[in-house]
Nucleic acid binder design. Structure first.
Lengths: 184, 184
DNA sequence: ACAATTTTGTTATGATATAACAATTGAATC
DNA sequence: GATTCAATTGTTATATCATAACAAAATTGT
């Protein structure tokens, strides 16, 4: 069900248009994500309609978290309806199915690298280049559940958004402006 | 500098208009927070002007995270300027000084219970009553720094927003609708 | 008082998201 | 195939959250 070999604490790099050779083939990610989505939806009797499917693809194709209106523009280019409810409905569906995350601090949407129903969204967000890396961390997950339970709180979803400076920007920043300034 | 005895992993309850007898005197929190704010600002040569000070008070007086426009309305009632930049400037200042947090998933603002410059915002947010409890957890903090460093990422700020069902709502929910439905 | 800086006032607009209701499509049954 | 019901999409309007840009006023240091 997961599109990556299931390491316990794996990380998934999102972004880096210019250089993802060190990473993996992003097209493979998209294909896997879509396949997973199909399976999940069928299993749950939900309909991955044209606009929902295409929205998911576009989100995956984007190398950064995608804003709702950015996504809407892309959909409109392809002949889909261009009114906001179109995109928000697709996003709601995909969020509900656990196929994407919302990065709250960016008001932007990102393919879920773990396609689970656990609603965990753990992100490293670079202040400079705005690339986002999703990570998983079972120990943290367990600790948070325990901490919540200790307060009598029943945990349903977790959002962790860590901001700072990514490795690339830390390197380039000291010498010159980084190469990832463009956004789209 | 902290307004609570400095437990390692303390929790601070925000909310519960009807019942905070089990908790502590909220007025004390406000007074302490304001005193801390004064001290911090003086130390750093920053000016806690009337509108900034009153904004901070109002945020603390609110028993739930306060939206920018809610705060703006309260300020306007008291004769402050009623245009959005007024409130966003105050919020920016208070955020920058580490005196408040933004709850990203609610677009709302909350007094920082630890008045530190570490920019940690760890929250338990109830889906039902929308009360928010801030907590601190040094082990998680350390683990996140380590995890980030492992990716070459230099951590600057942390946001953890955990949603689910609080103890009160878990109890009341099973029998009847909870008593905290109103939103100010 | 004067100049420099910070803060606030003011107008306008941008960006994100939802409400409400009509029209269409899909799926299940007759 | 026609009928019915539910889910999805279209459409218009509006709510909510946030910032740009520049003018006016207040504060600080000299």
């Amino acid at each position: 069900m997961a599109q990556h070999p299931s390491h316990q604490d794996e990380s998934h790099h999102v972004g880096h248009d210019q250089d993802h050779s060190h990473d993996h083939n992003h097209n493979h990610c998209i294909d896997s994500a879509l396949a997973t989505a199909e399976t999940l939806c069928i299993e749950q009797g939900q309909r991955l309609t044209k606009v929902r499917r295409r929205a998911l693809e576009l989100i995956w194709e984007s190398h950064r978290p995608l804003g709702a209106y950015q996504l809407l523009a892309k959909l409109a280019e392809e002949g889909f309806n261009s009114a906001p409810p179109t995109v928000y409905r697709a996003l709601d569906f995909l969020l509900g199915a656990g196929l994407i995350h919302k990065v709250e601090s960016m008001n932007a949407y990102l393919g879920c690298a773990h396609a689970d129903k656990a609603h965990k969204g753990y992100f490293l967000i670079c202040d400079e280049c705005h690339n986002v890396m999703e990570f998983d961390y079972q120990d943290i997950h367990a600790a948070l559940i325990a901490k919540a339970a200790q307060q009598g709180f029943e945990l349903r979803a977790e959002t962790i958004e860590l901001t700072g400076l990514c490795a690339e920007c830390k390197a380039t920043n000291t010498s010159a402006a980084n190469t990832q300034g463009t956004r789209t």
